Amino acid sequence: MDLVALADFNLVARHGGFGKAARAAGRPKATLSRRVGELESNLGLRLFERGARDLKLTEEGRALFERTARLLSELDDTASAIASGGHTPKGKLRISAPALFSQSAMGKIAAGFALKYPEVRLEVTTEDRAVDMIEEGYDLVIRVNPDPDINLVGRAFLRDRLVVVASPNLPRPTGALAAPGVARGAGERQTWHVKTSAGRSTIKIEPVLILSTLMMVRDAVRAGVGAARLPISLVTHDLADGTLVHWGDLDEPEVALWALYPSRRLLSARVSAFLDFLKQVFPNGMPDELAAYVGR
């Protein structure tokens, strides 16, 4: 297979059209069109559906793109490493991370990584949705309790747990009474099952606020408007100084943050360096480490 033609096909697929790819690469549109046409002829497959205004990958084209995009990237990384005489991390590293982790810790992590690896151009975006790594060009994603994906591998680098907290001025309800609650999103459950040293119990809540981020929820709970479910790492300092009180741990599985990347034999030096950096920042992967790293 002609690797140049394959690289041109990936360029067009990544940019979604011959014109955009030509402008991005500074190459003639006609050359890219000819190369892709030759690749289609050699394979005996149609890789793109060519409409009047748009260009879409066929099913075969998408499969080829998903299987070869990372391989070509690995070839480039290997060639660059050999040319530079080593495996020094360099180049662009795109990461997608969830909102809470991004807001609380990712800025500090990114700064530390940039200082340690100045030749890596780190780009971090905040996404709570499950991004398509291949289609959207990410090298690594950080996700909370991700669903299994045969196309991705990775490791859990940090663990947390959910607790119910409230202002010390808010009395804990008894019996069938409900406590005012701060919910994250309209789908928040109104009955929380908690466990304490005294055993298991149930707390009923009546949402008085519905907010979209956990940072907003924490700030509202600090103000005394109601109780809420929050990660222990986010309220460790508040519990220590008495700003908030602990009503119990949620009787649910722990929360795990995973660093995921495409399943492949050769892992780029950039991704390996970032995974190692996360391990250095959170050596045991426990909630108290995140709380200490983030600070007050």
Rank of each mutant, 00 (worst) to 15 (best):
A63V: 10
A99M: 07
V217N: 06
A79W: 14
R229S: 13
K90N: 12
F18P: 02
E66N: 15
D249W: 05
G107S: 03
R161Y: 14
L45D: 15
V163P: 09
D132V: 01
R218L: 03
R296E: 11
L177D: 14
P148D: 01
L170M: 05
L39Y: 09
A114D: 09
T174A: 13
I203S: 06
L3H: 11
L75W: 11
L152T: 07
L275W: 04
L234C: 00
R94N: 13
T236M: 04
H87M: 15
D276M: 03
F282D: 06
S233M: 02
L239Y: 00
A79F: 14
A183E: 07
T174Q: 15
I142L: 06
R27L: 14
D238V: 00
P283H: 08
T191S: 13
D219K: 09
L278Q: 06
D139E: 15
A178D: 12
S33D: 08
N42D: 14
P262L: 07
R46G: 04
D77Y: 08
A186E: 11
F101G: 03
K195M: 10
L152D: 04
H237I: 00
G154P: 00
H237D: 01
E206C: 11
P171W: 10
K195H: 13
L57T: 03
A273G: 07
E206H: 05
D160G: 01
A63G: 02
G51D: 08
P89T: 04
D132M: 04
V255A: 04
A259L: 00
S73W: 12
V141I: 13
V271K: 02
V4A: 15
Y293G: 02
E60K: 11
A227W: 04
T213R: 07
D249N: 13
A13V: 09
G295V: 07
K29P: 11
A52S: 15
M215K: 09
S33W: 10
R264C: 07
E66C: 07
A176T: 14
A166I: 08
N151V: 04
F65E: 04
V153N: 04
I109Q: 03
L244I: 03
K279M: 05
V208L: 07
L260S: 05
P28W: 11
R229Q: 09
L93R: 13
V182L: 11
A69T: 10
W247G: 06
W247N: 01
A13N: 05
D147V: 15
E119C: 12
P89C: 08
K90P: 08
A69W: 05
T191V: 13
I232Y: 06
A183W: 09
R67E: 12
N42K: 14
A22H: 09
L211I: 12
R161T: 14
L211C: 08
D219G: 07
F48N: 01
L214D: 14
L115V: 08
G248Q: 04
P118S: 13
T191I: 10
R218Q: 02
T125P: 00
V217Q: 06
D139M: 11
